[in-house]
Design a protein around this nucleic acid. Sequence first.
DNA 1: CATCTATTTCAAATTATTATGAAATGCATA
DNA 2: TATGCATTTCATAATAATTTGAAATAGATG
Lengths: 130, 130
Amino acid sequence: MTDTLLPAGENAGDDEFEVRCGIPDVIRDDLVQIGGIAGLRARLPPAERIGEISATHHALSDPVRVAILHLLSVQPLCVCVIRECMGISGSKLSYHLNILRENGLIVSEQQGNWMIYRITERGGMFAEAG
Amino acid sequence: MTDTLLPAGENAGDDEFEVRCGIPDVIRDDLVQIGGIAGLRARLPPAERIGEISATHHALSDPVRVAILHLLSVQPLCVCVIRECMGISGSKLSYHLNILRENGLIVSEQQGNWMIYRITERGGMFAEAG
DNA sequence: CATCTATTTCAAATTATTATGAAATGCATA
DNA sequence: TATGCATTTCATAATAATTTGAAATAGATG
């Protein structure tokens, strides 16, 4: 990354890469069209958005959580019913419910002794899609 | 789970649970309508399908992989261009490309010295959605 | 107030995922 | 065949996620 045929500038490094790299023509031609490496980068969602997207997918990356989401897409449920339905320990269930809630896929509301969980609109979209 | 008011049968355990559990009326009434715990379970996708869903989400649960998918939604790319664009090591990139490929979100094709990755139709759906 | 039930929290142990750098593979070309 | 380049593989280290069981919290009820 020291010698380059191109004038120094904001994207000098990228242009230099494209010049030096002997990648297949089909790819390079299109790449040049869209502005090279810099153009490619510019088409990425901002890092913050990418973080949000991966976080949501992470929330649904465990079969227990996918199952919970589907149960709640049927109707709102208290913890003890979810627990009975899935046959897992209370603390384990609580752990997974937290992750779904933190990611805005479900919400909870206390009702006397019980905690009622229900799916959000956002959560519903993922339950339908899956 | 020993004494129950109901006849023994396939779902005796579940019915017993519903009878004993003093969950809020709003929830229990609906729950009874759909067939209780057993009815709820019957509405879940099969375990196999839930595994597939969570596996796909897992493939997209890392920001590096989400970024790669978005890059490939612009155009097919060889590894060296993705690498330059993201500024990560080759072995790290290879690791993440493998996960995306194993989950059917991208495919690869060798072209001389280069390996060209392109997004699949399935992968494209997730790139659009995100 | 004492007790029961439902749920959550916590710390520790277990397991899974990701990162790293060196070595290996495979194609191209002199 | 020797060399160079692009990519992958491998073993290992580092980090993160999940499970577990005991203890804590909080509402309801006698």
